[in-house]
């Protein structure tokens, strides 16, 4: 009886695993084939392994524009997530640990920012940036990506839960300034939470599509998602792009998968904490 009980759930889990991983497996296999073999070999198994050739062709195509896109994505995303997390952490921490007039008002405004869809902001941001003739620049995508209201919300919850008031009092008695206390003590206590905020922010910016689509006209400023999108829209006119789109799609997901693998122990437990309170 016990065995029967286990077989059912394991079958469900196995089926779900296939559903989630087969498309990525297909992408890996497809990206490893030459153009000729892509169309006339078994789609879900390797033919002659030419991933290396495909990669070097992809990286060389049009002066290495693809590598440029990858670099852009890393700069937009890594930079915005890193700075954005520090700013959100400081703000959330202050909202959790200090009592001051207007505290709840600020928190509520930030919280309603969570409900405002980021895509609704893209067009007005474009119009504002165009007043300063600053569209089609690195900053036009980078600066708006720094703001993460959900991060403030999470930081406040985490700070309340993980930084005891007694500890802050003690460090005050030791003569440590508020700012120093934050960076030397509180931020350390909040560290696992900060990694979670960072990851959420990273994924959100990495996936952001409408803002760069509206802001950028210069191909050399594109993040990789927009670059792949623009290639994909040209596939019907330039069929050779198809291999580049597939190989590029594979390359574009590698950094995030690696980041998730390395930071596993943080997101595994941290993700749900925002939902509990």
């Amino acid at each position: 009886m016990k065995n029967v009980n286990r077989i059912g759930p394991m079958v469900v889990m196995a089926a779900a695993t296939l559903y989630f991983l087969v498309p990525i497996w297909w992408l890996l296999v497809a990206a490893s084939k030459s153009r000729a073999q892509f169309n006339n070999t078994t789609p879900l198994w390797f033919a002659d392994f030419s991933l290396g050739d495909n990669l070097s062709e992809l990286f060389a195509y049009r002066d290495g524009v693809f590598l440029r896109w990858m670099l852009n994505s890393v700069l937009y995303t890594g930079g915005a997530a890193l700075i954005g997390t520090v700013l959100a952490a400081m703000c959330g921490y202050a909202l959790a640990k200090y009592r001051f007039p207007g505290r709840e008002a600020i928190f509520n405004i930030v919280l309603s920012g969570v409900l405002v869809p980021a895509t609704a902001l893209a067009l007005p941001l474009f119009l504002i940036f165009s007043q300063f003739e600053a569209t089609n620049t690195f900053w036009s995508v980078f600066l708006p990506s720094l703001v993460n209201p959900f991060g403030v919300y999470l930081a406040r919850i985490y700070a309340t839960a993980s930084v005891p008031d007694e500890l802050l009092e003690a460090s005050r008695l030791d003569g440590s300034g508020e700012v120093r206390t934050f960076f030397t003590i509180s931020a350390k206590l909040m560290f696992p939470a900060l990694v979670t905020i960072f990851l959420f922010h990273f994924v959100a910016v990495w996936n952001n599509f409408l803002l760069p689509l509206i802001m950028l006209g210069n191909e050399r400023l594109f993040p990789v998602t927009l670059g792949l999108y623009s290639w994909n829209t040209q596939v019907n006119q330039i069929p050779e792009l198809r291999m580049f789109v597939l190989t590029g799609a594979l390359v574009s997901i590698v950094p995030l998968v690696i980041a998730f693998l390395f930071l596993q122990r943080f997101w595994r437990n941290g993700l749900g904490s925002g939902a509990i309170k």
Binding site: W206, L228, I253, R268
Partner: peptide, 14 residues
Amino acid sequence: RLAFFVPYAVPGVV
């Protein structure tokens, strides 16, 4: 847990 989470690392466009 990891296998189910992998697709989240794939951008919507991709």
